[in-house]
Design a protein around this nucleic acid. Structure first.
Lengths: 108, 108
DNA sequence: TTGTAATATCGAAATATGTCGATACAGCGG
DNA sequence: CCGCTGTATCGACATATTTCGATATTACAA
């Protein structure tokens, strides 16, 4: 009698999803989502001071979240004088949709 | 002389993104992404034993990740006999796309 | 009922993350 | 140069996460 298998051998994918995971990790915080949504819907840049004014976080914490978003490549920053302005990266939405496609449809 | 503002007052959004953040957090791990991608591309159920066989993780760790995905609602499970089979939730992709839209376009 | 296999849960360890106060840095005005 | 304001970094703390070994649970078979 042959060994019983629980199921026909399914392909468990062995691709490297670490970059996609890093992207989703950047979005895995409600305050960072509020920042990204504000940038997307403002359709332009927003000054750091507006985030520190409006978010329920202290200034170093806002700076910390902005750094994580900046390092993920989803947002960019530009200093003008004393102020620093953040914008959504032009390809932010496309990169996220691409990651979703990679997961759900196997695109790369 | 009036107080100088760094910029015209931009709307920093105060919506509650905690549910979207939870969804992205479920995807913020490369092993969980591999699980979701396998389920999506298998277009059907996959037995836990296949994950424990193929992922570079021990069995309790696989079970832990499956639980996180199950609790996020992105996957479902069904026991048949000794084995447990996991499937992608039918609305998984739609929920994620909806979250992306909520962030980038302000839909709710 | 007793044993075996598959999966889940528990408890602990290491690491990562979110948060903040204190401080450093950068740019501007005097 | 000095002081002020906006932003970033540092250090510390609490909490969360990932991982695993040990153990419990579930279902089946003898």
């Amino acid at each position: 009698m042959s060994i019983q298998r629980c199921c026909p051998p399914k392909r468990v994918i062995k691709a490297d999803y670490s970059e996609d995971a890093a992207l989703f990790q950047a979005l895995a915080d409600e305050n960072r989502l509020a920042i990204v949504a504000s940038l997307a819907q403002a359709d332009g840049e927003i000054c750091v001071c507006d985030f520190t004014d409006c978010l329920p976080l202290n200034q170093p914490t806002v700076s910390h979240h902005l750094r994580i978003l900046r390092e993920s490549g989803l947002v960019t920053s530009e200093r003008r004088g004393t102020w620093v302005y953040y914008s959504l990266a032009p390809d932010a939405k496309r990169r996220l949709q691409q990651s979703l496609r990679a997961i759900f449809e196997g695109d790369e």
